[in-house]
Computed example of a mutant assay.
Amino acid sequence: MTQQLDFSVGMGKETTYGSPSAVTRFFESEAKAKYDVKTIKGSGLRPTKGVARTSRQSISGFEGSTDIELDAPTRGLGFLLNAVMGAVTNTLVSTGLYQQVHTLSTTDPVASYAIQEALPPIGGGASNVHTFRGCVFDSLEISAKEGAYLSVKLSATILKMLTTGATAASYPSDDTLFSFVHGSIQVGGSLTEPGATTLAVGDAIPAVNISDFSLKVARNLDKKGWNLGGAGLRSRPPVLGKPEITGKITAEYTDNVLRDAYLAQTPLVLILTFTSGSNVLQIAMPAIKLKGEVPTSNGGDVITQSIDFEAFDNGTASQPIFIVYRTADTTP
């Protein structure tokens, strides 16, 4: 018997876009996939037939989407990071500890995944399985807020939906979560890029006035591919677009470093590091530019700045963003 809490979300990487593949990883996320059956109606009219007829209404296409949201775990997160970033190296650091360095892929085709959602019916009984094929991830969001666990959200498009292919859910027994109290941030200075077994290093003094951070990596995949012969399904995987790396920080107004960097449009290094035991999640960007704002009064309360930023290629660093993940996982 099941209860309404007994849903599960699992994923597996496909070898061919939309082809059957095993579900190998499960995540503590809600099952929220949406799948649309698009239809068309005929435009012709016939005497005495004022209402649209069933024979003139047909399926015109299928398209789905999903968001996977979860607290950032110390096991399994690399699989999700790779789904969006696309390129990764994986190296043994010490016994039982591996370092993954995730960067933006620059070649097609984009990897695709199967997503399995198991949904329990009301009143108990075996969960009903929805298996989605040809899932391609377009964006990644990471958010750190005071008093909370680090939050991760991924968004994907879906090729097709099946109602078969159940795999029993399984989870690591030794994973923990990264939280705000595990974090530190450096803004400014210079950057030493992460190596295969070394973290990124900056020479700026860690900031103590940042209360909120968010990052979004958007791959901007193309939206076309519904061609003749596809039977209403996308006939090919999406191709890479021009990526955008954006975010926001909220800072208490303790000095004019961020204000002056905004006014002069000075590129800044940003390094955000979360550590939980020997596990690490680090985001390093060699060159971000701030989009505002200048400080203003706050009715007598603490003055804060809500500052959007965008990451750029500075012509020197090998990548515009590195996401480093140290974990007990042997593979991403």
Rank of each mutant, 00 (worst) to 15 (best):
Q4G: 09
L5G: 14
F7S: 14
F7M: 14
S8D: 11
S19F: 10
P20L: 05
S21P: 11
E28F: 14
V37P: 10
V37S: 07
V37Y: 07
P47S: 13
K49D: 15
R53E: 14
T54F: 15
Q57C: 14
S58V: 15
I59G: 13
I59Y: 11
I59H: 12
S60F: 02
F62E: 04
F62H: 11
E63F: 11
G64L: 08
G64T: 09
S65Y: 05
P73K: 00
P73E: 00
G78E: 08
A83L: 01
V88M: 08
S94C: 08
S94P: 11
G96K: 04
L97I: 12
Q99C: 02
Q100E: 10
Q100H: 08
A111M: 06
A111V: 04
S112G: 10
Y113E: 03
A114M: 08
A114H: 09
I115L: 11
I122M: 15
G124E: 08
G125Q: 07
A126H: 11
T131L: 14
V136P: 01
V136K: 00
F137M: 03
F137N: 04
S139M: 06
L140F: 05
E141N: 10
S143Q: 15
S143F: 07
K145F: 08
E146K: 13
G147K: 07
A148V: 09
A148Y: 10
L150W: 03
S151E: 11
V152W: 07
L154W: 04
S155C: 12
T157N: 10
M161N: 13
M161E: 15
M161D: 12
L162T: 15
T163Q: 12
T163E: 11
T164G: 02
T167L: 02
T167K: 05
T167C: 02
A168W: 04
D174G: 09
D174E: 12
L177W: 06
L177G: 09
V181A: 14
G183I: 02
G189H: 06
G189K: 06
S190C: 06
T192C: 10
G195Q: 01
G195K: 01
A196S: 13
T197G: 04
L199C: 01
A200E: 02
V201S: 11
D203L: 10
D203G: 12
N209T: 08
N209Q: 08
N209G: 09
I210R: 01
D212V: 07
D212P: 12
L215R: 03
V217E: 00
L221Q: 00
D222Y: 00
K223I: 04
K223W: 02
N227H: 13
L228D: 14
G230Q: 06
G230H: 05
A231M: 15
G232M: 07
R234C: 06
R236F: 08
P238S: 13
P238I: 03
P238Q: 10
V239S: 12
L240S: 08
G247Y: 00
T250V: 11
L258G: 02
L258D: 01
L258N: 00
Y262P: 04
L263W: 00
T266K: 01
V269I: 00
V269N: 00
S278Q: 13
S278C: 07
N279M: 04
V280R: 03
I283V: 09
I288R: 03
S297G: 14
G300W: 05
G300Y: 07
G300I: 05
E310F: 07
E310H: 08
A311H: 00
G315S: 10
T316H: 07
P320G: 05
I321D: 05
Y325H: 13
Y325K: 07
D329C: 11
T331S: 13
P332K: 01
